[in-house]
Amino acid sequence: MQDDRQPILSVRNLKTSFFTDEGIVRAVDGASFEVHLGQTLGIVGESGCGKSVTALSILGIVPRPGRIVEGEILLRRETGNGQSQEVALTSLGDSSSEMRSIRGAEIALVFQEPMTSLSPVHTIGNQIIGAARLHRKLTKQEASELAVELLSLVGIPRAEGAIDAYPFQLSGGLRQRALIALALSCDPRLLIADEPTTALDVTTQAQILDLLRSLQEQNGMAIMLITHDMGVIAEMADQVVVMYLGRVVEEGPVDTVFGESKHPYTQSLLRSIPSIHSTPKVQLPTITGTIPHPYNRPAGCPFHPRCPDVMPGVCDHHEPELQSVGDEHLVSCFLYHPVPETSS
């Protein structure tokens, strides 16, 4: 880990849009963040905030009619003998051989729904062997041994037998473990986990989160954890990115974002969650209204129609930029930085 301060992945001003017949949906509208080795970056937001599209953009698998329209995604690759080099993923073709050698190998993805992301007609073992042999020079025998090793690493009992099991024969928690084993088969340096525990029960969720943490301790990979659950973020992340309607509204170390949140969206989101420690049976502070439909994005700050601290004439006319408000703490809100003078 010689490049401790150099991020393994940096995303700069990423914009991904979907060009549909009804109009353009700006799913990700200027997201910037960095991921470091051995750290967990949590991306949190409600539905439609662009957190999953961000993950798809990084892997170059944005489905049509969507595409990346602007921005840079830089991945630091090791070139051997301790050197490393940044590769701009955005300038590689989505199906170029270099992108294909990165996807699944250096960056792996764990999806939310383990049933739909595993092949139903191949055994778990064959899926891991296939993925491993695609990216690494392994004989069938070696790959099969690797599969058993991975399955026992992720805590699947009787791993020798489990490689011959089909996904439908496993429970939800075991399927999610198998999917993590598959993602780890090429020893990724960055694991993107998109809602990895949303479909699971709390006790199973605790098992999977524990597993991710211990795997990270063992192999020092970076994890990008995407979720809507503030509890999971608080438990897992080192750095947090809060997104709303495709934009990063707040970013910083986990203690800062939860302890000294600055953006009105983050503040109201945290207040509106019932907690085991909050007073029962009282009316929870809510965020008024609902998330706008992506076709009708509000002008100016996307949160202004629901914001308790909205400044008329400012927030609905100008788009705030993500700016520093403290040590590593960034907020995109006019309450904390000056309003641009030119009124457009």
Partner: peptide, 15 residues
């Protein structure tokens, strides 16, 4: 097992 939305409470969970 319930994750709390507060990083200061990263508790010892019973797995």
């Amino acid at each position: 097992a319930v994750p709390q939305p507060d990083p200061t409470l990263r508790s010892q969970r019973i797995i």
